[in-house]
Design a protein around this nucleic acid. Structure first.
Lengths: 220, 220
DNA sequence: ATATATTTTTAGGTTAGTCTAAATTTTTTA
DNA sequence: TAAAAAATTTAGACTAACCTAAAAATATAT
């Protein structure tokens, strides 16, 4: 049977909060992420459990079942493909696409997704550097480092962001930090852990710890 | 304020049933078109009237107000633009896009629609020959003829269809009747009004009155 | 180990959109 | 034009997804 818009959202959020190791997600965390109250979450959890989409024992938190995981990954695939479409084809900025993709991700039709994927040239990553699951549902999170783990004088490639907030992305735009940029860590300030970094061998700028924590990079 | 998915559908359907001259639409007709019961329609009509989207007096049928008309036309614009996208960019057949566009038409975001329109090159017609309202909401239904109004030995251009049912469109595909085709009426059978027509100066085929009634054409 | 704090669930209610059955209004027909 | 038929509305109920307030379970702290 079909899952509702709301059910799909819960599954997607459980997937995100559950992380790679599939740790239990608490009712309160879900209430926070869905902008609802804990009591509402409990109702939905009972329903998702009845449908076999989550493992749920009262007071113990939830994890996705295999079938719930499948649904979640399909939604994520759709979300990320639509984001690529919005940025690559329609010319949106990477800071503008999240909310629209939140809607598009729930449009049903397997064939639509597959045709969209083909039209976009089977992209492997979305505009924020997040990997796009393939049609079979294989999702391999590449193991990027966080910029805070990079030593002084190392050169790394900018591969993605952890925070997707428009304000953060706009800040990166203004700093010239885009996907694929080469970042060389010139100096790390002991006091506040802010860093001095050079972008693409060009301008050097200061970035706060808050920013460093949200940049995913790769050694070359 | 925002209109719901369901409200938008009612407005769209009232627009369609109301026709160019804005004639009153009956509760039963709406129940039929929305696949709901008359009682449900009445509830919704009260709500739409309260929002100022329709003119409604009990037992008298409804018409759209100016503001209801605006909403309806926006939905129609989105529907038709998405249909163009699905056919032109994703390679769907004209018989496959209706249901998907029914979903996409309710995705909010003005800027999405305008960027989509630009990406598609500001198309004037959708894959079924229906005109696409412009960004200001101007919708001019071109006054095509129905093939039944064409005389023997006249040559006309195939411009659109009245029936959008997949089975009808597939039938046209099999007959080689596509948008833009030149149709010459060779003969009309007095008995059942079926016609013998030549397509693009090539093969001649017989079409039933039922088919003729659903073909929109233009004199050259 | 018990008292307190926190988290989660239950109980009972709300709204949007639907339903059936009954009542009412309009239309048709004789 | 009055009776019958058809269309429409009202009344009362349901489900999904949410809510608040209170109860119960778990976790924390002394």
């Amino acid at each position: 049977m079909q899952n509702s818009f709301t059910e799909e959202n819960y599954l997607k959020i459980i997937h995100a909060l559950s992380g790679r190791d599939g740790v239990e997600v608490s009712t309160n965390a879900l209430a926070e992420s869905t902008s609802t109250r804990a009591a509402s979450v409990t109702d939905m959890l009972r329903k998702l459990a009845e449908k076999g989409l989550i493992h749920y024992k009262k007071y113990q938190g939830v994890t996705l079942t295999e079938s719930g995981e499948k649904v979640a990954i399909k939604v994520i695939r759709k979300h990320r493909l639509w984001e690529v479409f919005l940025v690559e084809k329609l010319g949106f900025g990477w800071d503008e696409v999240h909310d629209i993709a939140e809607e598009l991700e729930h449009i049903p039709s397997e064939v639509l997704v597959e045709k969209l994927d083909a039209f976009l040239g089977h992209p492997k990553f979305d505009p924020h550097g997040d990997p796009i699951p393939d049609a079979k549902g294989n999702l391999t999170e590449p193991d990027y480092l966080i910029l805070t783990d990079v030593q002084v004088s190392e050169k790394v490639l900018m591969m993605g962001v952890l925070d997707h907030a428009p304000s953060f992305l706009q800040h990166l735009d203004r700093s010239g930090i885009t996907l694929g940029a080469v970042i060389e860590v010139k100096e790390i300030n002991e006091y506040d852990k802010s860093a001095s970094v050079q972008i693409n061998g060009g301008p050097t700028l200061f970035i706060s710890l808050e920013v460093s924590k949200n940049l995913l990079v790769q050694r070359r």
